[in-house]
């Protein structure tokens, strides 16, 4: 199990997560409370959705640097349109369509014009941030009743535990992604692309369509994550979610998806998000540790997982 590139990294992540919980539980009172755990989901619902989209892209061997900027763009579109009096019933679908179309453009750029994913999504990142500034230079707050209701609603789970509707959305996205990746031909083609595009083509798979579609999915997930993010912050701000693409990539990598594609699971990425979340929680509980340790920890974890992946894949050459 541990030596397989398919399961090894995920198992390591799971063990790591449990270990961090154990350490937290020993050191801090109340750390192992159910709500602490649930808050990992509450605080990171949007990141889970982002990581799901990113997982699709990375599984094919690509990368999407635009997701943070697209989240910001979604918050700006939402905030400005709601301010102008549009109904959420129009705004939300519109955002999802717009970000999916952006993903489509990126996908076409990569597939048709053979632009490297890195560059194509970098361009999309600049485009999305630029559009944010066109909408407004300032933070716009949201007072729409649907959005505020969504933001303040807690879904009780019995005891004194509760979650937000965003968590439900994130969980649904994860379930959908698992089904798509594990049980549809499209999903298997995503893995096939990461295993070898040439092979996939020779096997007669729909390589072109799949390659474009993963970027549409990533765009859609970014839009959805942006909407969840506005539920969380109740505002739109052009500079929001800077560096979020790095968090998403880190979560996916720590969750055991190989950056060269082909190996990995959506549930692993969820574990990756939880690891990032629990590190943050530990640092909060510690009190004396400053928040910048989070980034150093994430960097160190990234390093460990990259070297681990390198070892696991080098062995089978």
């Amino acid at each position: 199990m541990l030596t397989s590139p398919k399961h090894g990294p995920v198992v390591v992540t799971l063990v790591l997560l449990l270990a961090i919980f154990a350490i937290g539980g020993l050191r801090y009172r109340g750390f192992l409370g159910g709500q602490v755990f649930l808050n990992l989901f509450v605080d990171n619902a949007y990141l889970i959705v982002l990581a799901v989209g990113m997982t699709f892209v990375i599984l094919t061997g690509g990368i999407d640097l635009s997701v943070g900027a697209v989240v910001a763009l979604s918050t700006m579109i939402a905030a400005s349109m709601l301010q102008a009096g549009w109904s959420p019933g129009v705004v939300i679908p519109l955002i999802l369509i717009a970000t999916s179309v952006l993903g489509l453009l990126v996908g076409l750029m990569i597939h048709v014009f053979k632009v490297q994913p890195f560059i194509a999504t970098l361009a999309a990142m600049f485009l999305a941030r630029g559009l944010c500034y066109i909408i407004s230079n300032n933070s716009i707050s949201i007072t729409d009743p649907f959005f505020t209701a969504f933001a303040y609603t807690r879904i009780p789970l019995g005891g004194r535990l509760s979650i937000t509707p965003s968590v439900v959305v994130a969980v649904l996205v994860v379930i959908a992604a698992v089904v798509v990746l594990q049980y549809t031909r499209f999903g298997r083609t995503v893995y096939a692309l990461g295993g070898g595009e040439q092979s996939g083509m020779l096997m007669g798979l729909a390589v072109a369509r799949t390659k474009v579609l993963v970027y549409i999915i990533s765009g859609f997930c970014s839009g959805l994550a942006g909407i969840l993010f506005t539920f969380y912050t109740l505002s739109g701000y052009p500079l929001t979610a800077i560096g979020t693409e790095l968090d998403a990539i880190a979560a996916v990598v720590i969750g055991g998806t190989l950056l060269t594609g082909g190996y990995g699971f959506v549930l692993g990425s969820v574990l990756g998000v939880l690891v990032l979340g629990v590190i943050q929680t530990i640092i909060t509980f510690e009190g004396t540790l400053s928040s910048w340790w989070t980034r150093i920890f994430i960097g160190a974890l990234l390093l460990v997982f990259i070297v681990l992946q390198k070892l696991l894949t080098a062995r089978r050459r």
Binding site: K6, R188, G194, G195, G200, M203, G262, R316
Partner: peptide, 8 residues
């Protein structure tokens, strides 16, 4: 060169 997918 085996044109299959080692990851599946």
């Amino acid at each position: 060169e085996v044109n299959l997918l080692a990851n599946l």
